[in-house]
Design a binder for these strands. Structure first.
Lengths: 124, 124
DNA sequence: GCGTATTGCTACGATAATTGTAGCAACGGA
DNA sequence: TCCGTTGCTACAATTATCGTAGCAATACGC
């Protein structure tokens, strides 16, 4: 087995209730978290490759997310280097996948780029 | 139909590639976004009730997320007040739901709260 | 009409998260 | 030994988020 990171115990924001779903939603709601899972859906990537895949996101956050995801048991650092999904992580990734097709439909369901601001008559 | 918010065009971070999945992952990767979808899974909630459901999160962010989610077409402000999911939003929510059961298994699959820091021997 | 309560929403200073750039130590191949 | 790559960190600058307070509009009972 590959190296394992700490635990998931680093108090996950918004998880004060102790309900696992809240902890998970919070963990996945941090920047680049979902993206990282997405980019690792295929073969493992080196930290550098992952960074490239994530639009050159700052290594600081990527490392932070990577550590958190490792502690959560979703990601692991392979023995030969390179980050990959654990079995658990792949399971989670399976639930993120369908977002792909959804996103496509979402895009086309949008009345195309109307590029206004937040200053419209504003209803209610 | 209920009131609609602006467009989804407010350049979604990480969506520079134009790939819808990236825009979606980024949108959902902002704080409270997933949580809001989760809390709205049932009946519509007033802004106040939603705030309560979200551990009294600051109204500033909630309003920001709510606006973004409305512009994305996932959430709408009902005619009689109160936020609810659109058809599209409910679809999206359906993909978030399974995370609930996953989170439960995830919790129990964890070697129980070892509460160490980020200072372990640190492998690699 | 008058007070009161609720709604959606905003202002604003304080705090925490993220960004960008640079660079380090460890390892491997030539 | 000299590169080149790996995972990872430092640090200042910029953003995002928090927490508290409050506003305008609406709806109620009186």
């Amino acid at each position: 087995m590959a190296k394992q990171a700490g635990s998931k115990t680093r108090s996950v924001r918004g998880s004060r209730t102790g309900r696992p779903i809240m902890a998970l939603l919070d963990l996945l709601g941090r920047r680049w978290a979902l993206r990282i899972l997405w980019e690792l859906r295929g073969e493992p990537l080196t930290s550098r490759a992952l960074r490239t895949a994530c639009d050159e996101a700052s290594p600081t956050v990527l490392q932070a997310r990577l550590t958190e995801l490792r502690e959560a048991g979703f990601v692991e650092l392979g023995d030969g280097g390179g980050y990959g999904l654990t079995a658990l992580g792949r399971e989670l990734c399976e639930m993120v996948m369908p977002l792909h097709r959804f996103a496509e439909r979402w895009k086309s369901s949008s009345p195309s780029p109307r590029l206004r601001g937040r200053d419209e008559p504003r209803s209610r």
